[in-house]
Design a binder for these strands. Structure first.
Lengths: 147, 147
DNA sequence: CTTTCTGCAAACGATTTGCAGCAGC
DNA sequence: GCTGCTGCAAATCGTTTGCAGAAAG
């Protein structure tokens, strides 16, 4: 989506931690910003084939520490990474129960209304200190359905 | 909860795959049925200290194949395992964003009503083939809050 | 110049697998 | 008795880390 403002915001957040905004980190942010889904480390390396694994891991970690990137969990236990919602916009995830791939899902007003009520129900009835909630959809993705 | 019927159902599902319902597997199912939260492999071994890791992993895998056990993802990427909902009853999860531990949360009618509407919104507006959805609560658990 | 980043290779921890003997049916 | 399970040890896979040189500010 809005890639240019994202890049500026990232620069600020990194600077706040005495971190540099190097060419590799710019490439990583751009890759995540334009992917439309959370990426695994192999995905990220595929997008920048010269990038060594260790650097990919270290840069992802640095961006997580800066609050720019978030780790999401799919159905398998492989790390998947996306931009923080403040940078990419609010969305949900569609998780393929077959291959584990995760796609972004833009919410509809009707869905958000229902989820807001669900969150209220939890807060008022549950007695939990709930900071946030995750609502993921699970099914079989298009790629797996035709195979 | 209802441990005895669970045990019978597990026997049937294992038999359908030419799998045996051994003493170790009974112990594993009982452990999961009475835990009130998804367990990691270390948790499982702590409950049956003579159990070797490799056997724990193999039995968990066998029970997943039989549809008796389900892997759930917390905030970290460590496998956590619980009985399938058909055996344990419908529930949600409270995930501690600090230590990663996951607790079961019994739903309230109001919450379920809101979530049913959310699921309907996804099906009718989204065009996804949604088989199930996950609604997890995220916050800091009691143990971490006092520390 | 000083501090952080990069790339390589080695280390690490969780999970998996090969194999020989034991157990369920 | 045949087939599947167990336990050990070794292998594997994703991820992390130590170090020496290159790059950013």
């Amino acid at each position: 989506m809005t890639v240019v403002p994202v890049v500026d915001e990232v620069a600020l957040r990194l600077a706040a931690l005495d971190q540099r905004y190097t060419a590799l980190r710019k490439a990583l942010v751009t890759t995540l910003a334009s992917s439309g889904r959370p990426l695994t480390i192999p995905d990220i390396i595929a997008a920048t084939p010269t990038l060594p694994q260790s650097t990919a891991y270290r840069n992802v970690t640095a961006l997580i520490d800066a609050g720019v990137v978030r780790r999401v969990s799919g159905s398998d236990d492989h790390g998947r990474f996306e931009l923080a919602e403040e940078l990419s916009g609010h969305h949900h995830h569609f998780v393929c129960s077959n291959c584990g791939q995760v796609d972004d899902v833009r919410p509809t007003p009707r869905l958000e209304r229902a989820l807001a009520e669900a969150a209220r129900a939890v807060e008022e009835d549950g007695g939990y200190h709930v900071a946030e909630h995750r609502f993921d959809l699970v099914g079989v993705c298009a790629g797996c359905r035709e195979a």
